[in-house]
Nucleic acid binder design. Structure first.
Lengths: 217, 217, 217, 217
DNA sequence: AATGAATGAGTTTTCATTCAT
DNA sequence: TATGAATGAAAACTCATTCAT
């Protein structure tokens, strides 16, 4: 008996607008899969949130699983897009690295969906990511940026030698990701509110410092 | 449907051994919840793996949810126990920190189910952890150890000042956790096998180095 | 288990006739709830009797409880409808009262399921009736008819004064209701068959006489 | 997860007192069967209310069904006992009849259990009453009292002739029974509170009046 | 006599998916 | 393209009853 809701701001969406229907379903699915996982999310609820008939999920995506993959693809595409937009220009290596780490932190801070979806996909042994040729085609501009910045810094003597760019990429991500991914349990166990703006700002400073200190010569 | 299997090593468990029944259910539940999450795991399958009647889940734990909480409590108790066993003795601060980071890495390397369970619990906004008085009573010995080591290193001038121990705790955990948590998607996206022993060993070295470099004066 | 049966007279109901499906479920539910009560009736059996898939109960009614309420509403609507059809025209008060009492008796004689449903609902403290706005909107035409007839008879001097119409309504109902409601235990205890047509006819005469005698001047 | 409760006032009943256990079970069963019916009552809950182990139901009564029969027998025995205690002495017939009707009304007013149990048993077509030789052996002293009183009144000319004593018995019972049996639905439908002491007192007067008027010459 | 563990057969309800229109 | 009805399979949970101690 989930109430039929229309997405915000769409009081009377066109009855025949396949693109809008698809987009509404995708947005609703992203929200539901992030909140409840592939197993916990309900096709009926996704359709209800999108304000459309349940059957349209099958029309547009084929199955719950394919809808899930479509969400993953959208989410990955979005983060890659965001990474592409990162303009470091001619910033000196240290300043460039600050930007990289900050941007990485901020993206995760703003997209808890992304974290939840990735965690669920990892539980599934990346089964969907593995089979998606679209996802394989998206390579991370960030890793190249990190490599370039690292190299430049090494040459200029502001970064130590011997830091692997993939390792650094994973470390930068991990320092932020774990904080947001485990926000609730850490807060409960420590008895603090890590979601508070002050806590987040403090963590952000720590992460940037931590990385810069770790790679200085 | 699901074949009745006995847990490994228990070819003919006593018909009346409630403790053994409870333990078998808990072990099976841990495995299933880690593999499939709270929503995806099946009570029937858990009972089948434990080799007992499905209704005993309700007899011993009350509900699927309470069984899930029991698993979380067990898992947290186990990690706290492990932390308590860490003996740093009179190691100098740098060596002590190497031990701390290594032990943290190794625990996660050996317990992928812990990671999976935590991720699922975080998706549920730590709903179970929050209500468990048993979990609130368990405080991490590790965080105290880190604080002590950090302080000693600062005094001896081998660590820089201004590093917060909770921040450091989260960073140490995050550098290892993210790697194992996102092993599958990272491997798929990068086209490498991060689960390979060589990769893990290499990551271990990186993490230890990274932390030590980050906190050197 | 339970064989798929089609409701009488519906040898091949349309596959897509939601109204017919609803009606078949309602009829089957009425029968089962009357025979076994809310707790004793089985959703599966109701669906089987209606010749439809068990899940349609949830599709059309939401839950077993809401189906039960729908049955109560139907049954009350039916009795109210029947009361409305009572045409006393210009009958003199005594003859009118005979009609009222007789009709009341006959309805209960012909609708043992109504009695069984009411008894069950009373065990539930009228929980369903209380929350039904549809039921609150149905007021009994009978009580008004009794009041009018009583008044007219008083004016004409054929009925005594001081009889309250609600009291009389309950008494008329009670004299018949108890007989049918407790038919089985009374028969068992007295060692007679109160369900036999002769017994019923005799009781009918008694009830009419009893009421008329009770209200004569 | 029904909490284990001890019956009021029995904080530590003897561990080995079969009679007390039997009585506690019977009392709990009476309450539960009255409240929920045979189908709705739970053996575990009955045992919990009685403060004893569930298995003792089987020890003492054999099955849920036999426990139900034991409750019916107890309840019938109680009402017969009560009827036996009715002392009309040498009251004149009208006064005697007032006593009979009043006592009948009062018993039902004070024993809603009895009504609920009888209704449930009637739904089961008196299946338990029929097979109980103990119940068949209990004949109602009331019906004999009514017959005597009726006869005496007829002889003295204070009651009309032609009233059958069984019919009268059923009418007396019905006038009170229906009121209490259908208290909740009638109150809900009429929007009044028939359970209020004033309503009950008023009904009591009506019933006594109604019967006396109905049988006067 | 008494207990708690254990069980088999259900019982309501859910859910992804397909069908008919 | 879109809808609501319909379905089969399963899911969590229940319950009367029996077993082992």
């Amino acid at each position: 008996m989930a109430a039929r809701r229309r997405v915000l701001g769409e009081t009377s969406r066109q009855r025949r607008d396949p693109e809008a229907t698809r987009a509404a379903l995708l947005a609703a699915a992203r929200r539901e899969f992030a909140a409840k996982g592939l197993a916990g999310a309900r096709v009926e609820e996704i359709a209800a949130i999108a304000g459309v008939n349940k059957q349209l999920v099958y029309h547009h995506f084929g199955s719950k699983d394919e809808l899930y993959l479509a969400v993953l693809e959208e989410v990955y595409a979005e983060i890659r897009e965001r990474e592409k937009e990162l303009r470091l220009g001619d910033l000196p290596p240290r300043e460039a690295m600050v930007q990289l780490v900050s941007a990485s932190f901020d993206y995760l801070a703003e997209h808890p969906d992304f974290i939840a979806l990735l965690n669920d996909e990892n539980r599934h042994q990346a089964a969907h990511v593995r089979v998606s040729s679209r996802l394989h085609a998206m390579n991370s501009p960030l890793i190249a940026l990190i490599a370039e910045t690292l190299e430049k810094g090494e040459r200029e003597g502001v970064f130590r030698k011997g830091v692997d760019s993939v390792d650094l990429y994973i470390s930068i991500a991990g320092l932020s990701y774990f904080y947001f991914s485990n926000l609730r349990t850490l807060s409960a166990i420590f008895g603090v509110d890590l979601a508070a703006p002050d806590s987040v700002a403090s963590r952000r400073r720590h992460v940037v410092d931590f990385v810069l200190n770790a790679i200085r010569p």
